[in-house]
Computed example of a mutant assay.
Amino acid sequence: MSNQVILMSYTMYCADVATLEDFSKELPVGQLLERANRDRTPDLDEPTLIGGDIAVKPGADRNADPCTSTGCLWLKNADGNVYIPYYISNQYSSREAAIITRGLESFSSVSCIRFRPYQNGDHEWLSIESRNGCYSYVGRQGGAQTVSLARSGCLYHSTVQHELLHALGFNHEQTRSDRDSYIKVYWENIQDGMSYNFDIINTLNQGTPYDYNSVMQYEKYAFSKNNRPTMMPIPDPNVSFGQATQMSRNDIDRLNRLYQCCKYTVA
């Protein structure tokens, strides 16, 4: 089977998978995230970040995938949907909140994920705030779980989807367990102290191929200290990668597989 996107025929939820909007005028998501977090000065109550924008708790194993080691999924309702409460901070203007809301709603047309506003009595929810930079924890943490989308630099459709995919349980594509078969890392070009951003994690890949077009894939100059590539695709270095401005079909496919949203067969 090739590494092209596997076309699936879904029997529930997935009729609109092919409906992907055009956000091509935005910069690639990796560039937006790196730019937003480059000079980040966190407050004392903010978490440590790894991989550029992944929040980790003190003492956490930085090379562990929560979905593999401890479980990270949000709970599924009896109707087959996964309802995830969210609260959008009043720090945002109506226009900024609309960008976030659009990102949240983009999941409902392609999966069984249903983000809904926080209600009294909810025990766990995403607290979307303008903190210092763009970041999220990986997977369900319990209680109020911060997703930071700073007003300065993070309010793009791609960055909203990227951080929400982290919150749903996904790591970066370039840290996939099979990364070395598809990406060559040039460690000598990585900024000092940033090499851990490229450490391989024992990820759950949901039987999907490596995706150069994933919204979770950074571009080839990510964290470069000398304007030389830190990553190149192999065996063909001319393959385009890290240019995503929204979720790819593979991103959608693996989300549905992780949460068992759809019954599907290979077309």
Rank of each mutant, 00 (worst) to 15 (best):
D45K: 13
E46F: 03
E46L: 02
E46Q: 09
T48F: 14
L49K: 05
I50Q: 02
I50E: 00
G51N: 09
G52F: 07
A55G: 06
K57D: 06
P58S: 09
P58Q: 09
P58F: 07
A60I: 01
D61M: 04
D61R: 11
A64L: 01
D65G: 08
D65R: 06
P66G: 06
S69V: 14
T70N: 07
T70W: 02
T70A: 11
G71P: 03
C72Q: 13
C72W: 11
L75F: 09
K76W: 02
D79I: 00
I84V: 15
Y86T: 04
Y86P: 00
I88V: 15
S89D: 13
Y92R: 06
Y92F: 15
S93H: 05
S93A: 10
A97T: 14
I99D: 06
I99K: 11
I99F: 10
I100G: 10
I100E: 05
I100L: 04
T101R: 15
L104Q: 04
E105R: 13
F107L: 08
F107I: 12
S108A: 15
V110Q: 12
I113T: 02
F115E: 01
R116L: 01
R116V: 11
Y118T: 03
N120M: 10
N120L: 14
G121M: 06
G121H: 12
D122L: 13
D122N: 15
E124N: 11
W125K: 04
L126E: 11
S127L: 09
S127E: 15
I128P: 09
E129R: 10
N132P: 01
